[in-house]
Amino acid sequence: MTALTLALSKGRILEESLPMLARIGLDPAGDIDRLLRVPSRTPGVSLLIIRPTDVPTYVEYGAADLGIVGKDVLMEHGSTGLYEPLDLDIAKCRLSVAAQKDAPKRDPRRRLRVATKYPEITRRHFADKGEQVEIIKLYGSMELAPLVGLADVIVDLVATGGTLRANGLIETEVICQVSSRLVVNKASLKTKHAEIAALLDQIRRAGQTLKAA
């Protein structure tokens, strides 16, 4: 069998992928807490454990044939350079706009300031509504920005809404629902078609069984 490499998104997506991977014998056969590349229990398939935002890059360059990554990351990456055949229906959450619960009225002469780690999605979302906004790119703890007056609103992933509530923020708008997708390198699908088609089929069926359970 031709060797395949599957890139996994470290963190919540990895945790939620493991049951599905175990079902089809692709669970890691090594210490995923320390190793960045581990073999899977299926010979010929190796796994990369990397930051979610790096998954599209690895797969688009062909350093990995396949990847599991959140729709949020794909939308921000914003290219047609990857195939995204499957919704794995795991790590579900939503991308939302949130604001301070009792925010002081904003000066209308100034553009809305939005703090986010998704500048592309944010720009597109507000542009679709016909609004030009000032985007402040942050790398973490978005919730803080409105509290200290750095931004008027934030655009961020919301799973339960707990962190928002704890910081006195409320969700004002849902941009889209997010779940994990399986992505495939375009050249890999063509040059290793039989192997990848078989794997896609297994993953699709494992997903259905797990959902039914």
Partner: peptide, 9 residues
């Protein structure tokens, strides 16, 4: 045309 190991056409 593609060759294996190269991610693009």
């Amino acid at each position: 045309a593609f060759v294996s190991g190269h991610g693009r056409e």
